[in-house]
């Protein structure tokens, strides 16, 4: 393999790491300038000044900010995200289950949404400006325009309450079989699919239509290829970069933006965990979750960048 590609990929990864450090700093500064005192919020309004001072000393809150930042960062790097103030649990172990749940839900939604969106995009181009194209666009845009909670409750109403195919509450626990898990997350996964579908579909359609103007599309048509083959074989490979970009943005949304859906279906994922602890002003948890979300975003964007580099034959096969 060639060196320019390797160089570009290394650059992207290095940039991602730098970005992650910058984000960790931002998160720390952000929680630092929030009003309120951690010791106060742990001990409550009735605490004595001596108790507060002792706790501050114990938590190291009297140290300068940069010392506390470095201590936190060092912990994060060694896998220690700290302990939750409100419950005293170790954050890393509480998060790992929930992160797995969130990733499972996101994966279920993505497995359906990404191929479906690309297929619909291809079909929309094949029958462009005709009734099929308009119907696909109308359906996808409508499903995106409805708020997630509205779609969620509609699904609950029909599939859980009226026809009782799926549970209204997505309870998952250890030792549950894979099929049971799928059954449990069917409704939230469907809701998420509907939310992210249109964006990816529209971008696929636009990116391919852009390529359809090229002379090589005419070459393919003049070889006698069927329209859908022309699109699949000759247009789509040249539209991968923008499509991958929007797919990765939506995957990130599936992991990071699922708060509402998780709350509706009472699904024990990251979103719900974050909401609970924001309400309780549990700063270490908020910091940890924020950092994980940022890492997910950065990772997926690196994947998108690298895919775009790999999809470019000029970079893959230099002269």
């Amino acid at each position: 393999m060639s060196s320019p590609i390797l160089k570009l990929i290394v650059q992207r990864v290095a940039l991602g790491i730098v970005l992650l450090f910058a984000v960790s700093l931002l998160i720390f500064v952000g929680t630092e300038i929030l009003p309120g005192d951690v010791a106060q919020s742990i001990l409550g309004q009735t605490a004595t000044p001596q108790a507060l001072a002792a706790l501050r000393e114990e938590l190291g809150l009297n140290d300068p900010a940069y010392v506390r930042y470095l201590r936190w960062l060092g912990g994060v790097l060694s896998g220690d995200l700290g302990t939750a103030l409100t419950s005293g649990h170790d954050i890393a172990s509480s998060i790992s289950d929930r992160l797995a749940n969130t990733l499972f839900l996101a994966a279920c939604a993505a497995v359906v949404a990404v191929p479906l969106a690309i297929l619909l995009g291809l079909l929309a181009v094949r029958y462009r400006n005709g009734p099929v194209d308009k119907a696909i666009s109308a359906f996808a845009l409508a499903s995106t325009s409805f708020p997630e909670f509205f779609i969620g409750y509609l699904l609950v109403f029909f599939f859980a309450v009226k026809w009782q195919f799926f549970p209204a509450i997505s309870t998952v626990f250890d030792g549950m079989s894979f099929i049971d898990r799928l059954h449990a997350v069917a409704l939230p996964a469907t809701a998420l699919t509907l939310v992210v579908l249109a964006h990816m579909m529209r971008m696929t359609r636009a990116a391919i239509l852009n390529v359809m103007q090229s002379a090589y599309i005419e070459t393919a048509e003049l070889k006698g290829l069927r329209p859908l083959e022309v699109i699949r074989k000759h247009a789509f490979p040249n539209a991968i970069a923008p499509v991958v970009n929007v797919v990765m943005l939506n995957l990130a949304y599936l992991i990071v933006g699922v708060v509402v859906v998780e709350v509706i279906f009472v699904y024990p994922g990251m979103g719900q965990y974050l909401v609970d602890h924001v309400a309780k002003r549990d700063v270490p948890v908020v910091q940890a979750v924020g950092l994980i979300f940022a890492a997910v975003y950065i990772l997926l964007n690196i994947v998108a960048d690298i895919s775009a580099i790999l999809a470019n034959p000029r970079l893959r096969h230099p002269k």
Binding site: Y216, E218, T219, K223, P237, N238, P313
Partner: peptide
């Protein structure tokens, strides 16, 4: 019938 275009550079698919 086959076709040879003016600009072969544009008429070949860059991805294949």
């Amino acid at each position: 019938v086959c076709y040879v275009a003016q600009s072969a550079a544009a008429a070949f698919n860059p991805a294949h």
